[in-house]
Simulated assay, not measured.
Amino acid sequence: MENYTVDEYALCTRFKSKRKKKRLVKEDFDKQLIQLRKLEKELWNKRRDLPLVPLEVPYQKGWQRNFKLRDDVAKSSEAPFYIELLEKINTWQFSSEKAFKRKKKRKRKYVYVEKFQTVKEFSEWEWKSSKLELTEKEKAHFYRRERWCSNWKQYRIHYVFNEPWRYVLRVSPYMITHTKMVDSDLESQIQLIENYIVNHHLREKINRLVNGYSNTWKFYRKENPKEKNPIKNKSLHALYQQYADEMIENHGK
């Protein structure tokens, strides 16, 4: 009778080899991570779909600025057309100050200049898209313009509204009247999954299984609390003092 190794005997029988057992364990763990990702997304969607709850006492959080129809245009016979068009091209800006200024560097000094705001402009892709809500009459009030884009390092085509003087800016308080409902049980489940993924360094592995790549957004790159660097966020003076104390102590011994 010939002698067989364990792996060779496993090939001839219904027993699984050690290599196959390891592979099955790994595949089962990967399937669990995929299901964990699905559960996490499901919980996120549930939190996103929670209704808004009105506040008993609304409060102001800065200022908002948008366009409105000019008074003389509002009295004309074409006012309904421009009001309907404004609903499609209006833009909003938010600021903590009523002046709506931003810091800008000029001649090695920082000065405050007013923020620039215009009605919505359409890119060439948006203009040719079937989802564009503008009618043919409304499209006639836009003109084609080429503008240098610093991000793409080339000229890009935009469609700009040709009568911006019909609208003026309006500044009003930005009031918070509603808040998102908070479900304590739902938040507890989300935090439990988040702690498990962070503590076991599984975020990149899950992304590799689901998306095909392991890169993660900076927002989700959280430091493991078990591996926090004890010298992180300490000043250099404190580190030098600690090093000097250790050297003195070792020299005394």
Score class of each variant (00 low, 15 high):
132 L>K: 00
81 F>N: 03
140 A>T: 02
74 A>H: 07
42 E>V: 02
37 R>M: 08
145 R>V: 05
37 R>E: 15
144 R>S: 13
45 N>S: 14
137 K>N: 02
134 L>E: 03
125 W>Y: 11
68 K>R: 11
53 V>N: 11
61 K>E: 13
41 K>N: 14
49 D>Q: 12
93 Q>Y: 06
143 Y>D: 02
79 A>M: 06
52 L>C: 07
41 K>D: 14
143 Y>E: 14
109 K>H: 11
95 S>P: 00
127 W>R: 00
130 S>M: 08
86 L>K: 08
41 K>I: 10
133 E>H: 01
127 W>L: 02
96 S>E: 04
122 F>D: 09
99 A>I: 06
70 R>M: 09
38 K>N: 11
72 D>P: 08
133 E>L: 06
147 R>N: 07
53 V>K: 12
40 E>P: 06
59 Y>P: 12
63 W>S: 00
111 V>L: 00
146 E>M: 10
129 S>Y: 02
48 R>F: 06
33 L>Y: 11
47 R>L: 04
35 Q>W: 13
138 E>Y: 01
102 R>S: 07
109 K>D: 05
99 A>C: 05
68 K>D: 12
130 S>N: 04
67 F>Q: 08
124 E>Y: 03
113 V>M: 00
140 A>V: 03
124 E>H: 08
132 L>I: 02
101 K>E: 15
121 E>W: 04
66 N>C: 08
54 P>F: 14
72 D>G: 08
119 V>D: 00
34 I>S: 04
90 N>Q: 12
50 L>C: 03
47 R>V: 06
108 R>V: 10
81 F>T: 05
52 L>S: 12
130 S>I: 02
111 V>I: 03
145 R>K: 13
124 E>D: 15
50 L>E: 09
98 K>W: 00
129 S>N: 08
135 T>P: 05
128 K>H: 09
65 R>G: 00
127 W>F: 08
46 K>C: 12
77 S>G: 03
59 Y>R: 15
67 F>I: 14
114 E>D: 04
79 A>T: 05
132 L>R: 01
99 A>Q: 06
50 L>R: 09
67 F>P: 14
130 S>L: 08
86 L>V: 10
39 L>G: 09
97 E>R: 03
65 R>L: 13
147 R>T: 12
89 I>L: 01
126 E>A: 13
139 K>C: 03
49 D>G: 09
77 S>A: 14
36 L>E: 10
97 E>G: 09
80 P>D: 07
29 F>A: 15
140 A>S: 10
130 S>R: 12
93 Q>H: 04
88 K>E: 10
136 E>W: 03
148 W>P: 01
131 K>W: 07
91 T>H: 01
54 P>V: 15
101 K>P: 07
62 G>F: 01
51 P>N: 14
140 A>Q: 06
78 E>K: 13
90 N>K: 11
56 E>R: 11
141 H>Y: 13
96 S>T: 15
99 A>R: 04
102 R>W: 01
141 H>N: 08
85 L>K: 08
40 E>L: 07
52 L>I: 07
129 S>Q: 05
99 A>G: 04
124 E>L: 02
139 K>V: 03
43 L>F: 05
68 K>L: 05
78 E>W: 03
33 L>C: 09
97 E>C: 09
59 Y>H: 06
